[in-house]
Design a binder for these strands. Structure first.
Lengths: 111, 111
DNA sequence: TTATTTTGACGTATATTTGCGTCAAAATAA
DNA sequence: TTATTTTGACGCAAATATACGTCAAAATAA
């Protein structure tokens, strides 16, 4: 039997790994970058910017929304997508935290 | 039909996403941290440090090895595991690069 | 009113990841 | 020589992730 054993790790490690996972697909990175470059809320079919179908892109958008990295609000027929700057900053800090913990300044590796 | 369409993205995005993926599991983060804290090569059964079976841990070690983040060299019956400081530094830079590209300093989000 | 546009919800098929059992190879110990 | 220890290779089963088609709801346009 195979059950998910990820629960059995430290809360901190789980959080860090979860955020890495959210960023582990080029489509999601692209969406974030696109919204960042636009520097404001964007409306319209984001799938035209990526080499994927609309439904698939929407699914990635949904994931990013559930993770809190982007926000959407309805405007008539359309939906406007935005980054959530606060959350982005938060996640950056979490990732930095892990990278910093991997201190290899004076690592001894005699091989 | 579902084929992997990840090829269709920029080389840079693919690389960044791939590195996030390598780090997207708490077991792999834990292994890296453990080796980092030890601050030198380690021998013995790493699985005793994690809530997973030996084979599973070995698989995660294998992934990290294939990604180049850790090295192993045989010493009699045992294998000594090390971080690869050079690669770690390299990956840190790649991740920083993406995080920096997500510039939200003056993000306009009127919602 | 009846189209049309835009988007989310749902289902489905395939691909990949995760977790582990089992076996075999290689080095040592007895 | 024959155990024993340690590890990697292989394969399986369950869980997740990817990609997308189809449909329906909601707002607008005609």
């Amino acid at each position: 039997m195979v059950q998910s054993k990820t629960d059995l790790f430290d809360e901190e490690l789980k959080t860090q790994a979860a955020w890495f996972k959210v960023l582990a697909h080029p489509a999601r990175l692209k969406i974030l970058q696109y919204l960042s470059e636009a520097n404001s809320c964007i409306t319209g079919d984001l799938s035209e910017e990526l080499p994927l179908g609309r439904t698939t892109v929407n699914q990635h958008i949904k994931e990013l929304k559930e993770a809190g990295l982007i926000q959407g609000h309805i405007e008539g027929v359309r939906t406007k997508y935005c980054l959530n700057p606060k959350k982005i900053t938060e996640v950056k800090a979490i990732i930095e935290q892990f990278l910093t913990s991997l201190n290899v300044g004076d690592y001894e590796c005699k091989s």
